[in-house]
Simulated scan of single mutants.
Amino acid sequence: MVICHILLLYSYTSSPFPLSYPIIAPYWADVDTRGTGSVYYRETSSASIISTVASHVSNAFPSQSPFYATSVVIATWYRVGYYNRHTDKVEVSNGFGGTPAQVGFNAGDNTNYYAVPGSETSSIVNIETTSNVGVAGMWVFK
């Protein structure tokens, strides 16, 4: 899944940052749900979820001004396969069968971008055990 409002992306394979267009890549890999699995996502304005997220961001960046969210996007990759309809490694998250996943964000200006350590390598499979805020699997950016 990739969030990009500037252009339509036709490639399921990730590209290394920096890029010439803005993109949020919570998990950019060759996921293929034609054989098995689903990708679920939703935007919510639930007060309790927004409060939890705002607390995580504020705790991660205590010297910054307060963070106020109006909505949160939640995404789940459930028992997904990889391209081309492969189902033998479901719930394995490193882009087997293609380029390993890219995780991070890119402002599109060739200056402001961040790739989670391990992006585009086989070690991205460990993303659920790593963090930049001391909570396994949580990466926070403001």
Rank of each mutant, 00 (worst) to 15 (best):
V80G: 10
V133C: 10
R34T: 14
N132C: 06
V135P: 00
S71P: 01
F67T: 02
G108N: 04
C4I: 02
Y12P: 09
N106C: 07
V39C: 11
Y114M: 09
P26R: 04
V73E: 03
D32I: 03
M1S: 05
A136V: 00
T13C: 05
R85L: 04
H56E: 13
G108W: 00
I24N: 06
Y10F: 11
L9P: 09
N126M: 00
T36E: 12
A115H: 01
A101D: 05
M138C: 13
G134N: 01
T130F: 01
R85Y: 10
M1L: 07
A47N: 12
V73R: 11
V31S: 10
L19S: 11
T33S: 10
T121D: 10
I49S: 08
M138K: 13
R42D: 06
Y82G: 15
D32N: 13
D32R: 06
N126P: 00
A54L: 02
G104Y: 05
M1K: 03
I6F: 08
G95M: 03
S48L: 12
P117G: 12
I74G: 00
Y27R: 07
V116M: 14
G37V: 02
E120A: 10
V140C: 06
I127F: 09
V57C: 08
F105I: 05
T121F: 08
V125E: 04
S45A: 14
D109A: 10
M138R: 13
S11R: 07
L19C: 12
N110C: 13
P62V: 11
Y41T: 14
S122W: 03
G108H: 01
R42C: 10
Y83I: 15
T129R: 08
V39L: 13
V92Q: 14
V31E: 10
Y82L: 15
L9Q: 15
Q64C: 08
S51C: 07
H56P: 00
N94E: 04
H5P: 04
V135G: 00
A115I: 02
L7D: 11
P100L: 06
Y68A: 13
S93R: 14
L8N: 15
T99F: 04
E91D: 15
T36A: 15
S123N: 13
W28T: 05
I23K: 01
S14W: 00
G95A: 04
V57A: 11
Y114H: 15
G118M: 03
S20E: 06
N110I: 06
Q102H: 08
T99G: 07
V140M: 01
P22Y: 05
I49M: 07
R85C: 09
E91H: 14
C4M: 03
A69K: 03
I23E: 01
A101K: 04
F17C: 06
V31A: 12
T129E: 08
S58V: 02
T99D: 10
F17R: 07
S55F: 06
F17M: 09
H5L: 11
H56A: 14
N110F: 15
V39H: 09
F141M: 13
W77Y: 05
Q64K: 08
N84V: 12
N84M: 10
V31W: 03
K89G: 02
Y40L: 12
S93P: 05
V116P: 07
Y10C: 05
Y78F: 09
S48D: 14
S93Q: 12
S93A: 14
A69E: 02
S123F: 07
V116T: 11
T52K: 04
I23Q: 02
V31F: 02
I49R: 07
N110E: 13
N110Y: 15
S48T: 15
Y21C: 04
I6K: 15
